Amino acid sequence: MENVKKTILYDAHIKQNAKMIEFAGWMMPVEYEGLTIEHDAVRNNAGLFDVSHMGEVEVTGPDALNYVQRLITNDAEKLEDNQVLYSLMCYSDGGIVDDLLVYRFNKEKFLLVINAANIEKDYDWMLLNKGDFDVCINNISSEISEVALQGPKAQEILQRLTNYNLDEIKFFYFAEDIEICKVKCIVSRTGYTGEDGFEIYTSNENIEKIYNCILDEGKAFGLKAAGLGCRDTLRFEACLPLYGNEISRDITPLEAGLGYFVKLDKKDFIGKEALVKQKSEGLKRKLVGFEMIDKGIPRHGYDVLIDDRKIGFVTTGYLSPTLKKCIGLAMVDIDYSNIGCEFNVAIRNKTSRAKVISKKFYEKKYKK
């Protein structure tokens, strides 16, 4: 455990009696008052997450735009300055390196925000594919800390701590040098919960001030410190993918239902040829949403069966705190992916019936 990293806010979590776990090589809070309490706070009021374990890679130079365009599946050329783009990075065979957020400052400066578990792997991949592009690629993850303020009251709380008009930050846009509690930050209208909210980046030395300031101001609005436990249930209800579950080295974006973020009409990107081929030949499997008919909570990794034949596996499953029913996502053979199809989920030592439903478990509440 001596190699496990701690965010700058580790002591703040301990003071709040957070239950800590190891996640992606970091000691992180999984819950404070309880997963359901924190989940409900985000859905109804607001929650504050420490997401300082996330990775940040800065790409600068004359060829920054062209390099990023080659690296990702989405279309970076359509980005305006101060706009954010969700995308994936793929291997040449179409498998997923990672999903990420692309922040465009200008055509010669981008910030790529990547998953904590993949920082070293992603950075190596970026360097490996630098080619002849005139760019500098810098892993600045250790220099930046981040918190996420999420929920319907997020703007009301944050607005009390800044003179910047937050209405000016549209969905998937950001602003630089915003003063929050008199500390300069990058603030984006993004998140991982299906709710309106903001992700706030600042220097390590200032993050604790920001964190405590938001917590104090938010108490009157029902704000709760929120852990990784409800971060997972929230993103799952909103059908947002998690690396290692819905997306991975062995899953393509098309299989994961993320084709919208794969622009096959782009001139070129790593993995394009394989994905064009997969689309033209037709998918052999697909990510679906499902609801349990029988009792039982589906969990990540459980087998999906027709009779005794495995046709897939559960990627994520929960008793949904919002919907109060057992639902899940599963990668299944294409023949069993239509709405209404029934299959069995192997839960412990028995099989339980389930049926395919829309993946739109929860209507997202983004502020457009």
Score class of each variant (00 low, 15 high):
Val187Pro: 04
Arg189Pro: 03
Phe198Asn: 03
Glu199Asp: 13
Glu199Cys: 10
Ile200Leu: 06
Tyr201Leu: 13
Thr202Val: 07
Ser203Val: 00
Ser203Met: 06
Ile207Pro: 01
Ile207Glu: 00
Glu208Met: 11
Glu208Asn: 15
Ile210Glu: 01
Cys213Asp: 12
Leu215Asp: 05
Gly218Cys: 04
Ala220Tyr: 06
Leu223Gly: 01
Ala225Leu: 11
Ala226Ser: 15
Gly227Leu: 06
Gly227Arg: 05
Leu228Ile: 11
Leu228Val: 06
Cys230Ser: 15
Cys230Leu: 04
Arg231Tyr: 07
Thr233Arg: 10
Thr233Ile: 05
Thr233Asp: 07
Phe236Ala: 13
Ala238Trp: 02
Cys239Met: 09
Cys239Trp: 06
Leu240Met: 13
Leu240Tyr: 13
Pro241Tyr: 02
Gly244His: 04
Gly244Cys: 00
Asn245Glu: 08
Ile247Glu: 07
Ser248Met: 01
Ser248Ile: 00
Arg249Cys: 00
Arg249Ser: 03
Arg249Trp: 01
Asp250Tyr: 13
Asp250Arg: 09
Pro253Trp: 03
Pro253Thr: 05
Leu254Lys: 09
Glu255Arg: 09
Gly259Ile: 06
Tyr260Gly: 12
Phe261Lys: 12
Val262Leu: 04
Lys266Met: 10
Lys267Tyr: 13
Asp268His: 15
Gly271Gln: 11
Lys272Pro: 01
Glu273Cys: 08
Ala274Trp: 07
Ala274Glu: 04
Ala274His: 08
Ala274Asp: 06
Lys277Gly: 00
Gly282Tyr: 10
Lys284Thr: 14
Lys284Asp: 09
Arg285Ser: 13
Leu287Ser: 08
Gly289His: 05
Glu291Ser: 12
Met292Lys: 06
Ile293Leu: 14
Lys295Ser: 15
Lys295Cys: 07
Lys295Asp: 14
Ile297Thr: 15
Pro298Leu: 08
Pro298Gln: 07
Pro298Met: 02
His300Cys: 10
Gly301Cys: 02
Gly301Pro: 09
Gly301Thr: 08
Tyr302Phe: 15
Tyr302Ser: 10
Asp303Ser: 13
Leu305Gln: 09
Ile306Phe: 06
Asp307Cys: 09
Asp307Ser: 15
Asp307Trp: 10
Asp307Pro: 02
Arg309Cys: 11
Ile311Cys: 10
Phe313Cys: 05
Phe313Ala: 09
Val314Ser: 00
Thr316Gly: 03
Leu319Lys: 14
Ser320His: 10
Ser320Pro: 12
Pro321Ser: 10
